[in-house]
Measured scan of single mutants.
Amino acid sequence: PDDLEKRARELLKRGKNPDEIREYLRNAGYDQSQAEEALKRAL
Rank of each mutant, 00 (worst) to 15 (best):
P1I: 15
P1T: 13
P1N: 11
P1E: 12
P1S: 12
P1H: 12
P1F: 13
P1M: 15
P1Y: 13
P1V: 14
D2M: 12
D2V: 11
D2C: 14
D2R: 10
D2T: 12
D2F: 12
D2N: 12
D2W: 10
D3S: 10
D3M: 11
D3N: 10
D3K: 07
D3E: 14
D3H: 10
D3P: 08
D3F: 13
D3C: 09
D3G: 09
D3Q: 10
D3I: 09
D3R: 07
D3V: 09
D3A: 12
L4T: 04
L4K: 03
L4S: 05
L4W: 06
L4H: 05
L4M: 08
L4P: 11
L4A: 15
E5T: 14
E5S: 09
E5K: 07
E5I: 15
E5Q: 10
E5M: 15
E5C: 13
E5A: 14
E5V: 15
E5P: 05
E5R: 07
K6V: 11
K6W: 13
K6H: 11
K6G: 10
K6E: 12
K6M: 14
K6D: 10
K6N: 11
K6S: 12
K6R: 14
K6Y: 12
K6T: 11
R7Q: 14
R7S: 08
R7H: 11
R7N: 06
R7Y: 15
R7I: 15
R7F: 15
R7L: 15
R7G: 04
R7T: 15
A8N: 00
A8T: 10
A8H: 00
A8E: 00
A8L: 15
A8V: 15
A8I: 15
A8G: 01
A8R: 01
A8K: 00
A8F: 05
A8Y: 03
R9A: 09
R9I: 09
R9N: 05
R9L: 12
R9K: 10
R9S: 07
R9E: 04
R9G: 05
R9Y: 07
E10Q: 08
E10N: 06
E10A: 09
E10V: 05
E10Y: 05
E10L: 07
E10H: 06
E10T: 05
E10R: 05
L11W: 09
L11G: 01
L11P: 00
L11I: 01
L11V: 00
L11S: 01
L11K: 01
L11N: 01
L11Q: 04
L11D: 02
L12T: 02
L12H: 05
L12Q: 02
L12W: 03
L12E: 01
L12F: 05
L12N: 02
L12A: 04
L12P: 00
K13F: 07
K13P: 00
K13T: 07
K13H: 09
K13V: 07
K13D: 09
K13Y: 07
K13I: 09
R14H: 11
R14E: 15
R14A: 15
R14F: 09
R14N: 13
R14S: 14
R14M: 15
G15D: 02
G15M: 03
G15K: 02
G15P: 00
G15Q: 02
G15A: 02
G15S: 02
G15T: 02
G15F: 04
K16P: 01
K16Y: 15
K16S: 09
K16T: 06
K16E: 05
N17T: 15
N17K: 12
N17D: 11
N17E: 09
N17R: 11
N17V: 06
N17S: 15
N17F: 07
P18L: 12
P18A: 12
P18H: 09
P18I: 12
P18N: 05
P18K: 07
P18G: 05
P18D: 04
P18R: 06
D19S: 09
D19Q: 10
D19F: 06
D19G: 06
D19I: 06
D19A: 09
D19Y: 05
D19K: 07
E20Q: 11
E20V: 04
E20G: 02
E20W: 13
E20P: 00
E20T: 04
E20S: 04
E20R: 03
E20K: 03
E20L: 04
E20C: 06
E20F: 10
I21V: 13
I21A: 03
I21F: 04
I21W: 01
I21E: 00
I21P: 00
I21Y: 02
I21L: 03
R22L: 15
R22P: 01
R22N: 03
R22A: 07
R22F: 13
R22G: 03
R22Q: 05
R22S: 04
R22Y: 14
R22V: 15
E23Q: 10
E23A: 09
E23W: 06
E23I: 08
E23M: 07
E23G: 04
E23R: 08
Y24G: 03
Y24N: 04
Y24D: 06
Y24L: 14
Y24P: 00
Y24E: 10
Y24K: 03
Y24W: 12
Y24F: 13
Y24M: 14
L25E: 00
L25C: 03
L25H: 01
L25Y: 04
L25S: 00
L25G: 00
L25N: 00
R26Y: 09
R26F: 09
R26C: 08
R26D: 02
R26W: 06
R26I: 15
R26E: 05
R26K: 11
N27A: 14
N27T: 09
N27Q: 13
N27W: 09
N27I: 12
N27K: 12
N27D: 10
A28M: 15
A28H: 10
A28W: 11
A28C: 12
A28Y: 07
A28E: 13
A28Q: 12
A28R: 08
A28T: 04
G29N: 03
G29M: 02
G29L: 02
G29V: 01
G29Q: 02
G29A: 02
G29P: 01
G29S: 02
G29E: 01
G29D: 02
Y30C: 09
Y30Q: 02
Y30R: 01
Y30I: 08
Y30E: 02
Y30S: 03
Y30K: 02
Y30W: 08
Y30G: 03
Y30V: 09
Y30D: 01
D31K: 06
D31G: 10
D31A: 09
D31H: 07
D31R: 04
D31L: 08
D31Q: 07
D31V: 05
D31E: 11
D31P: 12
Q32D: 14
Q32F: 12
Q32G: 10
Q32E: 14
Q32I: 14
Q32R: 12
Q32P: 14
Q32C: 10
Q32H: 13
Q32V: 13
Q32T: 13
Q32W: 14
S33G: 13
S33N: 13
S33R: 13
S33F: 14
S33T: 14
S33Q: 14
S33L: 14
S33A: 14
S33V: 14
Q34A: 13
Q34G: 04
Q34C: 10
Q34I: 11
Q34S: 10
Q34E: 13
Q34W: 08
Q34F: 07
Q34N: 06
Q34Y: 07
Q34D: 12
Q34R: 11
Q34V: 13
A35P: 01
A35N: 01
A35E: 01
A35H: 02
A35W: 07
A35K: 01
A35M: 09
A35L: 14
A35V: 15
E36V: 04
E36Q: 05
E36Y: 04
E36S: 04
E36K: 03
E36M: 05
E36L: 05
E36N: 07
E37N: 08
E37R: 08
E37I: 09
E37D: 10
E37V: 08
E37K: 07
E37Q: 11
E37W: 06
E37A: 12
A38L: 08
A38G: 04
A38M: 06
A38F: 10
L39M: 05
L39D: 00
L39K: 00
L39R: 00
L39H: 00
L39P: 00
L39V: 11
L39Y: 03
L39F: 03
L39W: 01
K40P: 01
K40R: 14
K40S: 11
K40I: 12
K40Q: 14
K40T: 11
K40H: 13
K40V: 11
K40M: 14
K40F: 11
K40W: 13
K40N: 12
R41L: 08
R41I: 07
R41G: 05
R41W: 06
R41S: 07
R41D: 04
R41M: 08
R41K: 13
R41A: 10
A42W: 06
A42I: 15
A42C: 06
A42F: 08
A42Q: 02
A42P: 01
A42D: 01
A42V: 14
A42Y: 04
A42H: 02
L43A: 05
L43R: 05
L43M: 13
L43N: 04
L43E: 04
L43W: 06
L43Q: 08
L43G: 04
